[in-house]
């Protein structure tokens, strides 16, 4: 929504601000994102291979791999290491399931002081909530399209 009430938008000043504000180091960030994100995915592949070797069937392995990564993320978030990694990794840790796990665990920890119900319980999905809402929405839409296509 645009700012309807404010008539003060000063274009010259906004341009001045643009010039004075340093941009994020995009190339450096992209390289870090690519390497760390890739490393997480490679680790997933390794887990996939190892769980397969342990004799689990493929369906079970598909559940075990993300569960393991979620557990590791939750522990790293809990001991305060995840945000130090994410500071460098950016989308590299945000896009894989690590980002989702971190976004649930971190508010759950932060709002403990307001109690289990109104704190942890209510605030746990404050960041992940939109992902769930629009994720489920998109999945439903996809399901409908899939259903219609399957009729022909």
């Amino acid at each position: 929504m645009a700012s309807k009430n404010n008539q003060n938008q000063d274009k010259a000043y906004l341009e001045m601000t643009e010039k004075a504000s340093p941009n994020s180091p995009i190339v450096k960030n992209c390289i870090k994102v690519f390497l760390i994100g890739g490393l997480i995915c490679a680790f997933g592949e390794l887990l996939f291979y190892l769980y397969g070797k342990c004799g689990f069937d493929e369906e079970t392995v598909k559940s075990l791999v993300p569960t393991t990564i979620i557990a590791i993320t939750a522990i790293l978030t809990g001991v305060g290491l995840f945000d130090d990694i994410a500071k460098h990794a950016g989308a590299g840790t945000l896009v894989p399931i690590t980002g989702f796990a971190n976004s649930v665990v971190s508010p759950a920890m932060e709002f403990q002081t307001e109690g289990r119900i109104l704190g942890t319980g209510a605030k746990m999905f404050a960041i992940a909530g939109p992902v769930i809402v629009y994720g489920c929405g998109t999945a439903t839409l996809y399901g409908v399209i899939y259903f219609i296509c399957s009729l022909f």
Binding site: D83, S106, P107, M109, I127
Partner: peptide, 13 residues
């Protein structure tokens, strides 16, 4: 902003 343990990147500004 965000919880402390949330992995967000800060803008240079």
């Amino acid at each position: 902003r965000y919880p402390l343990a949330y992995g967000a990147q800060r803008s240079p500004t």
